[in-house]
């Protein structure tokens, strides 16, 4: 069809002069962009179809009443009509855009709860329990330093004073405690993550 190669402005001119096929060509050329634009805002296929229809009814009426002036391009003009109708739609319904759960979009990606979920609370409790069991397996001197440092939040100076060893020895025991823990975790392939 020769119409397919004609620019929009000429098709509009032909349509205004009475060539109905010109409108079919214009719709076919731009339907996917216009409908996609509407759907991106509305996210509902039926409503998008309604707005698409209303958009083109407006286009047809404007063109037929000779009130279209070729100041801008055809597509941006139609998009603007569609945009205004989308705004009208939301105003009429007095609500924000509706979000529908799809495979690509989950409503929970924009809604979140700061509280840890029951699942993560359970995992945390389990991790802590596992870790405590592993710490119990450490040699007594290492376990002592690690518990005082990590659970009782004591400084190495305080630890060294209580245990009666130098700060360097306390640091060394802490280091070996951590190395031993890592070794056991690796060996048994224990997962200690939340």
């Amino acid at each position: 069809m020769a119409n397919l190669e004609l620019p929009d402005a000429l098709l509009v001119q032909n349509y205004v002069s009475g060539d109905e096929n010109a409108l079919a060509t214009l719709i076919k050329r731009h339907e996917s962009r216009i409908f996609g634009f509407i759907y991106s805002k509305i996210a509902d296929r039926d409503t998008s179809n309604d707005i698409f229809q209303d958009t083109f009814i407006k286009v047809i009426k404007t063109l037929k009443s000779n009130s279209y002036n070729e100041e801008g391009k055809f597509l941006p003009w139609v998009m603007r009509i569609a945009h205004n109708l989308i705004i009208d739609h939301f105003r009429k319904n007095k609500k924000m855009p509706m979000f529908r759960e799809t495979e690509e979009f989950s409503i929970f990606s924009v809604m979140s709860d700061d509280e840890p979920s029951i699942e993560s609370q359970l995992i945390s409790a389990q991790v802590e329990l596992d870790l405590k069991k592993l710490i119990e397996e450490l040699p007594l001197d290492q376990k002592e330093v690690l518990v005082m440092r990590m659970y009782q939040d004591m400084s190495f100076k305080e630890i060294s004073e209580i245990t009666g060893v130098s700060i360097n020895t306390s640091l060394g025991r802490m280091r070996y405690a951590l190395l031993n823990l890592r070794k056991v975790i690796d060996k048994h392939q224990i997962v200690l993550t939340n």
Binding site: L23, A24, I27, K28, F35, G36, N49
Partner: peptide
């Protein structure tokens, strides 16, 4: 593919 229903396009052409 984002396209309007065929019925919509057909209605528009008849309306026109």
């Amino acid at each position: 593919t984002m396209k309007p229903k065929k019925e919509i396009v057909s209605f528009l052409l008849s309306y026109s």
